[in-house]
Design a protein around this nucleic acid. Sequence first.
RNA 1: CGGAGUGUAGCUCAGCCCGGUAGAGCACUGCGUUCGGGACGCAGGGGCCGGAGGUUCGAAUCCUCUCACUCCGACCA
Length: 578
Amino acid sequence: MRTSQFFFTTLKEAPADAEVVSQKLMLRAGLIKRVAAGIYTWMPLGLKVLRKVEAIIREEMNHAGALELLMPAVQPAELWQESGRWTQYGPELLRFKDRHQRDFVIGPTHEEVITDVVRRDVKSYRQLPINLYQIQTKFRDEIRPRFGVMRGREFLMKDAYSFHTSYADLEREYQNMFETYSRIFTRLGLTFRAVAADTGAIGGTGSHEFHVLADSGEDAIAYCPDSDYAANVELAEGVVPEKSRGAATQSLAKVPTPGKTACADVAALLDLPLNRTVKAIAVVNEEESGKRFALLLLRGDHDLNEIKTSKIEGLSPFRFATEAEIVEFLGCKPGYIGPVGVDFGKVRVIADRVVAAMSDFVCGANEEDFHLTGVNFGRDVPEPEVADIRNVLAGDASPDGKGALEICRGIEVGHIFQLRTKYAQALECCYLDEQGKTQVMEMGCYGIGVTRIVGAAIEQGHDERGIIFPAAIAPFEVCIVPMAYAKSDAVKTASDQLYADLKAAGIDVVLDDRNERPGVLFADMELIGVPHRLVVGERGLASGQIEYKGRCDAEAVMVARDQVLTFLREKLCCVPAC
RNA sequence: CGGAGUGUAGCUCAGCCCGGUAGAGCACUGCGUUCGGGACGCAGGGGCCGGAGGUUCGAAUCCUCUCACUCCGACCA
């Protein structure tokens, strides 16, 4: 490709509303253009990157035995009504009516359609297992699209669905996909980690997320550097402290804490560490059967994990209590509430595992402007229910007992689920087994956010000059930057020849033949993230040499003209650009 | 959905308080000089100042409504 023949649109300044680095750089490099909130056009340069990502995914999926198909983006409401998600899914599901007033959706995912496909054509155990995938545009009407292609509304996704005659076979394929995903992200040149995940709204049991590690990631990941344990913080288990609860050494005392509603303020006032305090969070479970009020106890420096909490029996769904409800049940304004003196018959008290092991702690007195010190379970307050309801923190013991947890941030680029029979059951996706008996299929589903990968790659690889793409997905592998292409015949001839040679060698090369000053050429090639650069100038040509510089190299090196191809080949296949 | 903010040239922004026929830098076009790290000169093109209504002799500027976008929160995954 010659830049003069390409649609090349770089910007010196990023649009003011771009928030994250990848978004700014993608807009500056002209990879994408914003069309509406969370909706982008992929320009030719960006599409080259996207297609390279797709190609790697497609190759590895095919290699893993999956079969590609293409389902419609537009889906009839009937299928969603049949699975029950027509009502379960919120406004995130984009619905519309056609000219006959029939309801349709623009698919945010394709479980319904694929299950329909399979139930129509798969009748026998002999046709199973099967793994079908597509690379397709999805639409999720996010409340707040942001971060460019990282959380867009329209995005490209690879989604695969597998069907099995047994859970054991589903587990086998799940493992197959786990390994396939690891190969895909490795080939893409990304630093990633597979983490145990919550199964969320899609439902099912086993689930792993694949995260590209980056500080700007939206998800917090707890991992153990000393083992392979890694889990989304939403799911990471807070383990029971090894030490059992200490004996009570203090007597219960009421202390004035006017205006101190936060644990940190109370701790500071009493000159105690924050981890001696206990905060109480009032929640309400409201269903047709009535309203139930509960008090959740957490150590002052811990945060509530709503996902874990919502899994407590009888508490789901829960919401935070209103001030009026708190006054109604505890007779006290929020900020000073605690478990002491509450009627355990009316209020359910659930302590985090860590709190349950505390003694002589500080908590609200259920009286405005007062807290209690020296509080002990069993003596001052009945033993509460105990559950794991907090977010783990860095330094916590790893649940596998092999060291301490660290927390890092990640961008979720892949997610694999064992759906089991959730959709197959709802949509009656069945087959006949060896005995001729009707059985429901076991299902797995496996997604990769294709567009998000491009953003994630840039979050992971960039510097002040622009994008540093992994070689596997860079828009071009090599650029040739001629010094005065329009002026010097020697440079022009040598550049054209080099370009032809590299192209003939199957290298994805771009020749920047624009009649611009060198600074412009250098800056643009660096901005768009081309990993390898060859500079052709009269200076080097005089001694039969071409200058080479990797995108991250500090210094350029001179390479003999007739050695360039060999030199480059080695760089391209063996050495990462950075 | 609640709170805050922003809409002026393709991009970044000034002008708005204090009404008087629309500006800068970058980008773009032409000519010339320049040419190994985002050059310079001269000459140009480009805007219904988000939209509608109102106040006024006169509105980018003041008022009302509306739309879009952004941020924080809630929600969702």
